[in-house]
Design a protein around this nucleic acid. Structure first.
Length: 491
RNA sequence: CGGGGUAUAGCACAGUCCGGUAGUGUACCUGGUUUGGGACCAGGGGGUCCCAGGUUCGAAUCCUGGUGCCCCGACCA
């Protein structure tokens, strides 16, 4: 029986949900707003982690781990930070259960109330800066370049698998520097790491830019981000890198003696990407037949499906397959040979298509006779018969081509969906009828951005790093503007 | 936190109006025939009908009170 997927044109968000659930990436759990990430989905996340981790280490960072719980008092130390997160924190108030005296299950033991409540981390700036205070005395202790892989909890009203869940997995980098310039450089360095990862591994074109004041991280002086465009024309923030100035150093009294022996507050950054990247990956490339995964992140890049009538035929095919698997693996290509006799080839074709496996090889009696193999591409659903001899070279080149092709496709889509608007009417018309990024002038005030948001639901996704200086008038207020910014309706 | 749905087999649903001992598809198990795009036949197993009360000879169905989940809004990586 077919696993039905809602088409994108019929209901985009249902399509997304169907993909996540039916491709075995994740499912809703018994806990409101929290998901179970299933093995196939987690395998993709592990690939993302592995590459990001490598990139972080290459840029001089090391991993560490800080506690899940944060004393409540830590949050009150940085005013704008607490304001940003206060409304979505889970709080631990007790540390013990006991049997219900009425004999029905367990209850929270009222005698086990914590003296100070603990907050389940929505992010770790506070606990980390509290800790850094003890680690930093001199300029010789700097910089500190630490990353942690962790889970965090933000008590969201409405959740969606991967895109917004109450608990999610991420990495958070927290760095401490002696100078402002060095911290700013770090902020840019990491947004570039994210952009490179997105483009080269996820095949996801992104725009790097500054967040406007409204969209900035709570406690940051500047937030850099990468923004991607999804197939429904909505934007998705895929990663952020924050220049925190001396805000946290001052809040947690972290000072160092500089080379002149004078005390200075240290400069900070933080940066993160989360399992939300999974949502971006899914929505960027997939189609009505299922997932389309970029070869560099697919749990396995090639699936081999044998086609046979008798067990003798299967044995013959298996012998051929056993010979080519080592050749593929030697090229660094991951392969799954699905010789499960309980499923028919047609079922397997549909299943691996749904799961987005980039390349499928089908080997049947005809191929054995002719020394060939059928090669099917997931990205464009094309099929061709090629010589089995040298297949590893063919597949290697094909995987690279697929990686490039899906990036190019996503890039062409984004360019097609990025439009300049010079009047308010044009702006509203584009939002309603076309979607995507709208490049327009803005007077730079939070008030104007807020009003535009209220009237159209569109927000400033970013002020692109490569925005050209250009005199113009704000699309909304008519006041002078020095450059265009990117608007979009966002996830 | 407002508005709207929904809760019955692993999953998707019907049955509820009008009370009578729980059904379909799929998945699962067994056997056989099949296998180049989601096979077919036969047989089989599986359900505290969300929870707690109430009405009744009898409740998935009616009444009262809870709870979970989903969708839509305000808020967010």
């Amino acid at each position: 029986m077919a696993k039905e997927i809602t088409s994108r044109s019929e209901n985009y968000s249902q399509w997304y949900n169907d993909l996540v659930v039916k491709a075995d990436l994740a499912e809703n759990s018994a806990v409101r707003g929290c998901m179970v990430i299933k093995p196939y989905g987690y395998a993709i996340w592990e690939k993302m982690q592995a590459e990001l981790d490598r990139m972080f280490k290459e840029t001089g960072h090391v991993n560490a781990y800080f506690p899940l719980f944060i004393p409540k008092s830590f949050f009150s130390k940085e005013a704008s930070h607490v304001e940003g997160f206060a409304k979505e924190c889970a709080v631990v108030t007790h540390y013990r259960l006991k049997n219900d005296p009425d004999g029905k299950g367990v209850i929270v033991d009222p005698d086990a109330k914590l003296e100070e409540e603990l907050i389940v981390r929505p992010t770790s700036e506070t606990i980390i800066w509290h800790t850094y205070k003890n680690w930093i005395q001199s300029w010789r202790d700097l910089p500190i370049l630490i990353n942690q892989w962790a889970n965090v909890v933000r008590w969201e009203m409405r959740t969606r698998l991967f895109l917004r869940t109450a608990e999610f997995l991420w990495q958070e980098g927290h760095t401490a520097h002696a100078t402002q310039a060095e911290a700013i450089e770090e902020t840019f360095k990491m947004v570039n790491v994210y952009a490179n990862f997105a483009e080269q591994f996820m095949a996801l074109p992104v725009i790097k830019g500054h967040k406007s004041e409204n969209e900035r991280f709570a406690g940051a002086l500047d937030t850099l981000c990468i923004e991607a465009l999804m197939q429904d024309g909505k934007a998705l923030q895929a990663g952020t890198s924050h220049f925190l100035g001396q805000n946290f150093a001052k809040a947690f009294d972290v000072q160092f003696a500089n080379k002149e022996g004078k005390l200075e507050h240290v400069w900070a950054t933080s940066w993160g990407v989360s399992t939300r990247l999974m949502g971006a990956l899914i929505m960027a490339h997939s189609d009505d037949n299922g997932l389309v995964l970029p070869p560099k992140l697919a749990p396995f890049q090639v699936v081999i499906v044998p086609i046979y009538k008798s067990m003798e035929q299967l044995a013959e095919i298996s012998a051929k397959v056993d010979a080519i698997i080592p050749l593929l693996k030697a090229k660094g290509i991951s392969v799954k040979f699905d010789d499960n006799d309980a499923k028919k080839p047609g079922w397997k074709f549909a299943e691996y298509e749904l799961k987005g496996v980039p390349v499928r090889l089908a080997l049947g009696p005809r191929d054995i006779e002719n020394g060939t193999v059928e090669v099917a591409r997931r990205d464009n659903l094309s099929k061709e018969v090629v010589q089995l001899d040298g297949i590893e070279n063919y597949v290697e080149a094909l995987l690279e081509k697929i990686q490039q092709t899906i990036f190019n496709k996503a890039l062409a889509f984004r360019e097609e969906k990025t439009t300049k608007a010079d009047t308010w009417e044009e702006f509203k018309d584009l939002l309603t009828n076309k979607g995507g990024f709208i490049s327009a002038h803005w007077d730079g005030t939070p008030e104007t951005e807020q009003k535009i948001k209220e009237e159209t639901k569109a927000t400033i996704r970013c002020i692109p790093l490569d925005a050209v200086e250009e005199e113009g008038k704000c699309i909304y207020s008519g006041k002078p503007s020095g450059r265009r910014v990117l608007f979009a309706v966002a996830y």
